[in-house]
Design a protein around this nucleic acid. Structure first.
Lengths: 343, 343
DNA sequence: TTGTAGGCGTTATCAA
DNA sequence: TTGATAACGCCTACAA
């Protein structure tokens, strides 16, 4: 069935298409009278403008896209909420685009930029290893949000907002050491991770070293590739293995809260108590870490600040107020029930 | 900066645009030779077709959209994963569109249908109270997934897949009663909810009645409108109030697992033990209900079945194999650590 | 204040 | 197997 178009409306109203277009888009050059009349006809006939046609014609539509890799991550939920609010406050519209783990976020971005005439892009999650040449196909500003980048990527080429994953991870492990723990297990990303996973791992190693504790590879457990990354199940399975390996440890640091929760479950299943038998710590500071029993000691990322700053930088970039910028927020060590001193 | 178009590619290759279009879209009438040549040029020049133009021109693009209201709901995550898989298996592409709580999902759907030339739509979550007249503007088939509808909406007018929220809620409360509980608190949706919230509430009432237990309004607590619906925080706040009200109860049934977890936290804060002091039950069967400590007794919805059947019905509708269908799956009472018998 | 006409980048039709 | 050309539905100079 053929959809009703702007021409049909124009005919029904006995006016030209331009006039109808003006009515739709709140253009000034139109009398209130005709506008009201047109809007009424549009309503009566359920006319809905075709977005594809609009996007095709429009040079730039005030819209920002947020590309998010791995939507299951609870940590992103709050971020997105703030993004949406901030973007709407600026009278821009907001598109949330999920990117599959196996998809290339950059390709999606390039396509979306053309399709929607984007003005800016926020990348959330993932590793973001891309050739510069390909990045250059993006002609609008973009900001990487909470995507830890290793040094081999030139910081002059992009903007980012995040916490210092190395430092914050160090902070947690340092804390555990200060509580008397010397055998600290780590649930980390897979070894080929070059993003936050790697940084948090390095922070762990450095803290151990600074406390004169020898690094024990047997205590480091990587997430399973065949399970959803950063999932509770992943933490559960990996911890079960750790327990079966007979490696001794008194504390366990998981590089995300969800992994930590999975770890707790595995510990409970083995009849252990937290924190009496094992201290468990997470990272991110998602709501669940507070609601869990015991509540989880974690590193809380300042979500609101991160989100607001991301948008601020993006708009500054759009308005050419700044060149590439990197903002690093401090995160907070939140000590809760899941860890204890053993000294 | 002007983007490179199909015409540019055609010129560079010394062929017509049609030929380029054929190469891109895998049309048969083109020699492998020219096709390979064209694809190479496209690659070298990073040409990306403009989707708006394609959608504008195309009569029907094999794509299905899933509209989801309230993406924070963990229960939907698994559903979405299955949807994506099933849809891709059928060689269709998949669009996930988030709809804000305050937005009208139907309006979004109508617009999206035109913009993307959709072939079908899945609605997830929300209440779905819409005038028939407006629904008729949707010209492609759609299926309501886990959206409980009350009777005043003609079942011949739409298709749906869900569990029997009334019956399953009844099942849980019946179970609690059989465990000797007679003072059972309920955390429910707001009173003007006409969807699953209402159905689960009715199931609660019916089970009490069947056990000869008088309904006590003071034991029913509605989610706060000013907090995110079905959030842990909502469950937490509401349970705190309940505790302060001095209403006596031995069991608490929350109409979602997340609410139940919030409730547990409030109980723990008050120095109570679960299930020794209070039994707590949830609904949905999300992963978290298993990982929580204590693990939460819940009603597990058969997520995979629901998702698969939704897609099956949608495609049957698309291929005109069936008229409107309603599929109701049984859910499973999963008894775990958070509830106990007190008789 | 209003209308006409051309073009946005593709795909589909039809003729070569 | 190819290519010119007409839509697709809308916006916007420009003219009236």
């Amino acid at each position: 069935m053929a959809s009703i178009t702007i021409i049909d409306i124009a005919k029904m109203c006995g006016v030209g298409v331009t006039t109808v277009s003006r009515a739709i888009n709140n253009h000034p050059d139109i009398s209130d009278e005709t506008k009201a009349m047109i809007m009424q006809v549009i309503k009566d006939n359920h006319y809905v403008p075709n977005n594809s046609a609009r996007n095709l014609k429009r040079s730039a539509s005030k819209t920002i896209a947020v590309l998010i890799k791995g939507i299951t991550n609870a940590f992103f939920n709050k971020l997105i909420q703030v993004f949406e609010q901030e973007i709407k406050d600026k009278k821009y519209s907001f598109i949330l685009q999920r990117v599959d783990d196996k998809e290339d976020e950059l390709e999606v971005a390039i396509e979306l930029e053309k399709e929607k005439r984007l003005r800016g892009i926020v990348f959330l999650g993932g590793y973001f290893v891309h050739a510069k040449e390909k990045l250059d196909q993006l002609t609008v500003p973009y900001v990487l949000c909470t995507i830890g980048m290793t040094e081999d990527f030139d910081r002059k080429e992009y903007s980012s907002v995040s916490v210092d994953d190395f430092k914050e991870s160090y902070k947690m492990v340092d804390y555990l050491c200060n509580q008397g723990h010397r055998k600290i297990a780590l649930i980390s990303a897979s070894m080929d991770d070059v993003s936050i996973g790697k940084l948090r791992f390095e922070g762990y190693k450095k803290a151990l070293a600074d406390h004169g504790i020898e690094f024990n590879e047997g205590l480091v457990r990587c997430m399973k590739d065949d399970l959803e990354s950063y999932s509770m199940k992943n933490g559960y399975v990996v911890t079960k293995e750790l327990l079966e390996s007979d490696e001794e440890f008194t504390a366990l640091f998981a590089i995300s809260d969800s992994l930590a929760i999975g770890a707790c479950k595995a510990l409970f299943d083995a009849g252990k108590k937290i924190p009496e038998d094992y201290s468990v710590a997470g990272f991110d500071g998602v709501d669940m870490s507070y609601y869990y029993n015991p509540s989880i000691t974690t590193i809380r990322q300042p979500v609101e600040n991160i989100a607001e700053e991301t948008i601020k930088i993006l708009f500054d970039l759009i308005h050419k107020k700044i060149t590439h910028t990197h903002k690093v927020f401090p995160a907070e060590l939140v000590i809760r029930e899941s860890t204890r001193s053993i000294s």
